[in-house]
Design a binder for these strands. Structure first.
Length: 418
RNA sequence: GGCCCAUUCGUCUAGUGGCCUAGGACACCGCCCUCUCACGGCGGCGGCACGGGUUCGAAUCCCGUAUGGGCCUCCA
């Protein structure tokens, strides 16, 4: 047969929410597996089977599904191999490669020489064996520990490439020694850099959104998230930034993953999401927007939402900005501060516009502005305020058309009276 | 404290000894467009952490220092 095929794994901890940094690491696993035509497993690193774990597990899957990061075969659980790991630990004891200590079992590290490996992203890394502590591999209560089960599972699953966060670099020499003691082949290790907040510390709540779910409810598109995340610690060349999922799969390589940690740039994500939003077909944009609104529990009229979609497509970079921008189409507004004189004149002029469509409305209002001796900018401001209740809105004429003559005149009238 | 890792514009990065008076993108600033906000166009600001080597030549190689991070749990 051909060369051994690639098999990687995504190994989340069931913590209740999926950190975006973890997602990035999973994305690298996924990109690598898909590009190599290999397998990508999902293995939950659980140590118990509580209801919380079950919910967290479901949450992880939901986040990955949202982003289109799929996995092969059933979801695996670290706990499932606990018995097997325990047996292997006893085998190591029998062979003198581990020993009992206060009821626990400790792995006996080699006392001299070095352990090293050629990391697929960081190059050669070497540790002195005598600096490695004898690791507890089975607790006194019989539960195997993470740093034992993890390599054991990798061995059992036939993992060829361990792609994980750089915080595992220090665990690697011990895991390698364990694998060797077990007589297993070593996988290729690839330690990818961390993602930090602006202060150089681990990305956390105080920096902004951190979980996949938060980005979802803020109105980011999966394709934009994937593109952005892929570029955090990896690049294709010196000028390409917008890449489709397909292009990413085609171009990804571990060799081009950088070694230094990256800072999460929310503004760049916003920009990129805007690019993706603007590139959507109008139909698709309206559809995605509507779906997002429904996910948020906002039940604004579907036809109006769809009709307003083209008005905002070039104006917002996240769906989360839509409600504030278009609320006036669905809820009453308060026209505080709108110049009564202009609003009254606009109401009178608009009353006879026929038919009620943007271009006619525009003609009428421009004429009016000229008659009033006002610059368009000065004349339209009060009208916008009266009709949309805000200083920023979609195009004024289109907004008026969408709102309808009746409501528009009402609002103008209210502002004229106020 | 010990071990390991990292260090190019504010941010993500290109760069693997001469193509670099260091390129791109985001952000920022200015101008243009313009009914607001955006979009788009044009221009600008801005960086090789520091110090020693090696070399005809260093962002690129070596050593040291500084700074930041990770691990050192019967956590994962």
């Amino acid at each position: 047969m051909g060369a051994m095929s690639v098999k990687v794994r995504m190994a989340p901890s069931p913590t209740g929410f999926q950190h975006i940094g973890g997602v990035r690491t999973f994305l690298f696993n996924w990109l690598f597996a898909r590009q190599q035509g290999g397998e990508n497993l999902l293995r939950i690193e659980n140590t118990d089977t509580s209801r919380e774990v079950a919910e967290a597990t479901e949450h992880v899957q939901e986040s990955l599904r949202w982003l289109g990061i799929d996995w092969d075969g059933p979801v695996r659980f670290q706990l499932d191999t606990a018995d097997r790991a325990r047996d292997l630990a006893h085998q190591l004891v029998a062979e003198g490669k581990a020993y009992e200590d206060d009821g626990a079992i400790r792995f006996r590290q080699p006392t001299d020489g070095t352990v090293s490996w050629v990391d697929a992203v960081r190059g050669r890394i070497e540790f002195q064996n005598d600096k490695l502590a004898d690791l507890v591999i089975v607790r006194s209560d019989g539960r195997p520990t993470y740093n034992f089960v993890s390599p054991v599972d990798d061995m059992l699953d036939g993992i060829t490439h361990v792609i994980r966060g750089e915080d595992h670099v220090s665990n690697t020499p011990t895991q390698i020694n364990i694998l060797r003691a077990l007589g297993a082949d070593l996988p290729v290790y690839a330690h990818v850099p961390n993602i930090n907040g602006e202060d150089g510390r681990k990305l956390s709540k105080r920096h902004g959104a951190v979980s996949a779910a938060e980005f979802r409810s803020a109105g980011y598109l999966p394709a934009a998230m994937v593109n952005f995340l892929a570029l955090l610690g990896w690049s294709y060349d010196d000028k390409t930034t917008i890449m489709s999922r397909h292009e990413l799969v085609e171009r990804f390589s571990l060799e081009r993953v950088v070694r230094s940690p990256a800072t999460f740039d929310y503004k760049k994500l916003d920009w990129m999401n805007g690019v993706y939003l603007r590139n959507l077909e109008p139909q698709e944009y309206a559809h995605d927007l509507l779906r997002w609104l429904r996910e948020q529990g906002i039940d604004w009229d579907e036809r109006t939402v769809c009709a307003s979609a083209p008005l905002v497509q070039e104006k917002i970079e996240r769906f989360g900005q839509y409600p504030d921008m278009c609320r006036f189409l669905f809820e009453p507004v308060s026209p505080d501060g709108a110049d009564p004189r202009i609003c009254a004149a606009a109401r009178d002029r608009l009353a006879t516009v026929e038919p009620w469509e943007a271009s006619r409305i525009e003609d009428a209002l421009r004429e009016l502005a000229e008659e009033l001796g006002e610059k368009p900018r000065a004349a339209f401001g009060p009208i916008r305020l009266a009709v949309t209740g805000a200083k920023v809105s979609p195009g004024l004429f289109e907004s008026l058309e969408l709102l309808g003559r009746e409501t528009s005149l009402e609002r103008l009238g209210a502002a004229a009276a106020g």
